[in-house]
């Protein structure tokens, strides 16, 4: 079973998911990400799912939860590169992931993270 690498670039963590996640491995990934945030104190988290072709309700919920947990730790999360088949499935399942930031690709995702983390910083300073 493959592992998901977690990369740290600047103040952001990048998690490119290159394998199909099962329930077990998805839970492990969630733990790993949160541990990593704790260890590095990253401000932004970018999860790239462009290689994932199946996101079921469990994985969808797990991703939303991970974003919420990260938010509690002061980290903004952006989910990037969702495939159109995945989107259609999620819409069918009624999972609109309203409180999750999304972007088309990593480039856009990083730009969005920059504005998001910048905003919180501004807010904190006031």
């Amino acid at each position: 079973m493959g592992e998901v690498t977690i990369l740290k670039i600047g103040k952001n963590l990048i998690v490119p998911i290159q394998i199909e996640l099962h329930d077990q491995s998805a839970r492990k990934l969630q733990r790993d990400i949160l541990n990593y945030i704790e260890k590095t104190g990253a401000q932004g988290l970018l999860i790239d799912v462009s290689a994932v072709s199946i996101i079921d309700s469990f994985l969808g919920r797990l991703l939303v939860e991970t974003a919420k947990m990260a938010k509690l730790m002061g980290t903004e999360t952006v989910l990037v590169g969702m495939k159109k088949e995945v989107v259609l499935t999620l819409i069918h399942l009624g999972l609109t992931m309203k409180n999750l930031h999304t972007a088309l690709n990593i480039e856009d995702g990083l730009a969005l993270l920059k504005s998001l983390t910048g905003r919180t910083y501004e807010k904190n300073r006031k």
């Binding site: 989910l79 990037v80 590169g81 969702m82 159109k84 989107v87 259609l88 999620l90 819409i91 609109t96 992931m97 309203k98 999304t102 972007a103 088309l104 690709n105 856009d108 995702g109």
Partner: peptide, 12 residues
């Protein structure tokens, strides 16, 4: 609304 949330999920 469904269409809009689909676009949102894509990141658009």
């Amino acid at each position: 609304i469904t269409a809009a949330s689909a676009a949102k999920l894509m990141g658009a």
